[in-house]
């Protein structure tokens, strides 16, 4: 066995140090704060150029049914985006004519259950987390989106950039009229 293979085997899936775990947890919190305050310009700075942002649609199927719903990228997905595609969606808000965003939606992202693991790449980390994203609009329009995320974050200098995100929303019928939110 070569040294690299041994290295891969020992790094992959290993829990990260307390320090790294803290740094990445803080990164997730910062990201949540930027999304809560609609600071999308700074959020976009946290996204790697080779980002893949994926939120699959989840059908209800029997346990014996082995249809791959989560990782099959040819299936319907709320998001299956590259960074330029996310920026395209975001550019809608900059037009000043996104009528349904004015008055603004009020957001809170609660991020919990953070676990950080090393990967085979020295500068990339796998980060598990849970999200509770709450939205409230106008008088009493509200909804709650809950689920899990698996991310890959890459260290760039002293900061981290999001390279991959898979967010699994627990809804089958999404109990909301739209998804004017990033998770």
């Amino acid at each position: 066995m070569t040294d690299t293979a041994t290295l891969k085997r020992t790094r992959e899936g290993t829990a990260a140090s307390l320090e790294l775990t803290h740094a990445l947890t803080q990164t997730l919190y910062r990201e949540a704060r930027l999304l809560d305050t609609e600071n999308y310009a700074d959020w976009a700075e946290m996204l790697a150029e080779d980002l893949h942002y994926h939120m699959p649609g989840i059908e209800t199927r029997y346990r014996r049914d082995k249809t791959e719903q989560v990782t099959d990228l040819t299936r319907m997905a709320y998001y299956n985006d590259s960074k330029p595609e996310i920026l395209k969606r975001l550019s809608r808000l900059e037009t000043g004519t996104a009528w349904s965003e004015d008055p603004a939606t009020r957001y809170t992202h609660i991020i919990t259950n953070v676990e950080v693991e090393l990967t085979e790449k020295a500068d990339e980390f796998r980060v598990y987390s849970n999200f509770y994203a709450y939205r409230n609009r106008n008088e009493r329009d509200e909804d709650s989106l809950v689920g899990n995320r698996i991310d890959i974050w890459r260290q760039v200098g002293h900061a981290f950039q999001l390279v991959k995100r898979r967010a699994i929303l627990k809804h089958n019928v999404m109990l909301s009229k739209n998804l004017n939110i990033y998770i």
């Binding site: 040819t74 709320y78 998001y79 595609e85 969606r89 809608r92 996104a98 349904s100 739209n178 998804l179």
Partner: peptide
């Protein structure tokens, strides 16, 4: 097919740039 699927979800999926303004109305 993949291009069409992505395009539809970016315009008329729930998080699509068109869809988001319809339901509200």
């Amino acid at each position: 097919k993949e291009e069409v699927t992505k395009g539809v979800m970016q315009t008329f999926g729930p998080g699509g740039t068109f869809e988001m303004d319809d339901g509200e109305n």
